[in-house]
Amino acid sequence: MFRISPLIQITLISLYISLTIPLPFLSEITDASISDTVLWIGIIVGGLILIGTLSERVIVDEDQIKITYPIWFPFFFRKNWSLSWTEVKDLKLRTTGQGGSVYYLTSNSIDKAYLLPTRVENFAHLIKFITKRTGIDTSEIRPLSQPWMYIILLFCTLLLLLVDSMVIWEIIFN
């Protein structure tokens, strides 16, 4: 089983917190038309959706590759899928709008493609497993983003959290 990389999880959850937690405090001092309670409820619901999304699991075994989410995560947000290794036809490269590359597993029996998860921990091990089970050359496949990108984003997020803390401190105690 492969989970989303902890570096990615921590970075994205921290970014979400740094962008949303100041909103109820700022709403209070600006006399915004939306209540603090509504903002807090929205922040909590959004946080649960983010955590659920980041709880994606890639399960591989001798028979198939499968994407699953925790049972508590609402079905309308899930993108569960499974594909038998015998059905895998190829890996197709697609360019993203930002100039990156993503790969899709294509199926023999169904004219459908499944996005290859690239943000999992031990991605290289997942790729080796796919090569072993399918025989497809995966030597060119790289993760969508490198760890250093998330480290930079985490550093900037921590700076933002520091500024947020100072602003919230001022609001509460002044």
Results as ranks from 00 to 15, higher is better:
residue 66 K to Q: 15
residue 53 T to C: 03
residue 157 T to Y: 07
residue 10 I to A: 10
residue 120 V to L: 09
residue 148 W to F: 08
residue 27 S to V: 04
residue 150 Y to T: 03
residue 30 T to R: 09
residue 126 L to D: 05
residue 36 D to C: 11
residue 3 R to M: 05
residue 141 I to R: 14
residue 29 I to M: 10
residue 47 G to L: 12
residue 18 S to Y: 12
residue 86 T to E: 13
residue 85 W to D: 11
residue 151 I to A: 07
residue 53 T to D: 02
residue 59 I to G: 06
residue 168 I to M: 10
residue 49 I to Y: 14
residue 60 V to M: 14
residue 25 F to I: 05
residue 162 L to A: 00
residue 119 R to P: 01
residue 52 G to C: 13
residue 17 I to A: 15
residue 43 I to Y: 01
residue 51 I to C: 03
residue 4 I to Y: 13
residue 157 T to R: 03
residue 105 L to N: 01
residue 41 I to S: 08
residue 27 S to I: 04
residue 77 F to W: 08
residue 142 R to T: 00
residue 5 S to R: 11
residue 81 W to V: 10
residue 44 I to M: 08
residue 46 G to H: 00
residue 9 Q to M: 05
residue 103 Y to E: 02
residue 2 F to H: 05
residue 113 A to H: 04
residue 28 E to M: 11
residue 59 I to Q: 08
residue 82 S to V: 02
residue 59 I to T: 08
residue 29 I to F: 12
residue 22 P to E: 05
residue 143 P to K: 15
residue 79 K to R: 13
residue 105 L to C: 01
residue 55 S to C: 05
residue 25 F to E: 00
residue 100 G to P: 01
residue 87 E to Y: 12
residue 64 Q to L: 13
residue 93 L to T: 06
residue 14 S to M: 10
residue 60 V to Y: 06
residue 17 I to R: 12
